[in-house]
């Protein structure tokens, strides 16, 4: 298994064939911004935050889904990329109602962290202020569509890791919503096994455990690697 050697941001690195630019960069201390990517879930390349410049390619490529190739030259943090990422985060903040001050995930939200790291201190587009539902019908968990960014991690973890496929995405465009079962209340779902994996992988305060108040929500995503390694390699690594 010949490794691939390539250059990322001026540093020479090696990666296994088929490994993504994102993973190789991450393992070498370069954390490319991302929102829909999560180790252990198949990638969809939807949020476009992890786009990188690759020499010889006219278009920006999603680093989460682009396998490394021998002799690749990658730039992950050019001014143009930063500008794009900032505007993408602003579009997200304006798309629904992200009021950090009163959110359960305040202080532990990947979108909030990303806005800080990208230096987003205000949003240049108009806030849409849509009217979104909050589904509290499940005994242990809640889903607040105001805070959902449609990254589809919940859909993928429920389909691939738990296997219940309770979640999917309904409707289209800016009206797209995460739906449970028949597009019905989460509490009435026959598919849901109440395992809570979707709550743990959700990057924002959209999926939350009931009882957590403002700023109290803490999510632990390490379970995902633990389970995926257990299933694939029969190793239970604490």
């Amino acid at each position: 298994m010949r490794v691939r050697t390539l250059e990322i941001d001026g540093q020479m690195m090696t990666g296994a064939p088929g490994e993504s630019i994102f993973n190789v960069a991450w393992n070498n201390g370069i954390h490319i911004p991302r929102m829909c990517h999560l180790g252990g879930l198949t990638d969809v390349g939807a949020c476009r935050l992890c786009l990188v410049e690759v020499e010889g390619q006219s278009r920006l490529l999603p680093s989460c889904m682009t396998p490394v190739r021998e002799g690749m030259v990658v730039r992950t943090n050019t001014p143009a990329l930063q500008k794009h990422r900032k505007l993408i985060v602003e579009l997200l903040l304006a798309e629904r109602n992200h009021v950090c001050a009163v959110c359960v995930a305040n202080g532990a939200c990947e979108l909030q962290d990303l806005a800080t790291s990208l230096g987003v201190d205000h949003v240049r587009v108009r806030y849409r202020h849509p009217q979104c539902e909050v589904d509290l019908s499940h005994p242990r968990f809640g889903l607040d569509h105001n805070r959902c960014i449609l990254c589809s991690r919940c859909v993928r973890v429920c389909d691939e890791v738990e296997g219940a496929h309770n979640w999917d995405i309904g409707h289209r465009g800016t009206n797209a919503r995460v739906i449970s079962d028949f597009g019905t209340a989460w509490g009435d779902s026959e598919s849901c096994t109440s395992c809570g994996k979707c709550v743990q992988v959700c990057p924002t305060g959209a999926l939350f455990s009931k009882g957590a108040s403002v700023g109290e929500m803490r999510k632990d995503r390490s379970f995902l690697k633990y389970i995926v390694t257990a299933r694939e390699k029969h190793q239970w690594i604490r």
Partner: peptide, 16 residues
Amino acid sequence: DESCGKCIPCRAGTVQ
């Protein structure tokens, strides 16, 4: 209206 809603630049960009 026809954006599929998967990626943010198009889903939110067209609206703005």
